[in-house]
């Protein structure tokens, strides 16, 4: 099953990078949201795929009875999902604020931090 997942992950990454390379902040945000999924799938596939057996130890046993899905990438991804959401929400609000203040959604026109016509720094001490 891993080759299929490898292809799927590549596709997720392609779409997300393409969206992030755009100049419109909305498309960039969509790209960031998809990037989280792409990376999670990458981790998931790295830990190898196994169908339908969650890593839960049955009652009365000390170790899993048979082979289970790999718990380690799952633990990593679980926290990653929540963090990428917080990050995404932050970016979303930031974009919204920037749009409200600058009236621009195109990165070409969002030049407050590094203005185009910034002259040379003052000479002197």
């Amino acid at each position: 099953m891993e080759p299929v997942f490898a292809l799927l992950t590549g596709l997720f990454l392609t779409v997300s990078v393409y969206l992030m390379l755009s100049k419109s902040i909305i498309r960039m945000l969509l790209g960031v949201a998809i990037l989280g999924n792409a990376v999670n799938l990458l981790l998931f596939t790295n830990g190898r795929i196994l169908r339908e057996v969650p890593p839960v130890i049955a009652a009365g046993l000390d170790v899993p009875a048979g082979p289970t899905a790999n718990p380690l990438p799952q633990a990593l991804i679980l926290t990653a999902i929540v963090i990428s959401f917080s990050f995404f929400a932050f970016l979303l609000v930031l974009a919204w604020r920037a749009y409200g203040t600058l009236g621009a959604d195109n990165t070409d026109r969002m030049r407050v931090a590094e203005p185009e016509d910034g002259g040379p720094p003052p000479s002197g001490y």
Binding site: P3, A6, T9, G10, L11, L13, V17, T45
Partner: peptide, 24 residues
């Protein structure tokens, strides 16, 4: 942009294939 994105995706796919072909 599409070329760069495709290159990234291709790279991730190839890397993942290589990794999963190695013993776990």
């Amino acid at each position: 942009d599409a070329a760069i994105a495709l290159a990234c995706g291709l790279g991730a796919t190839l890397l993942l294939l290589k990794v999963t072909q190695a013993p776990f």
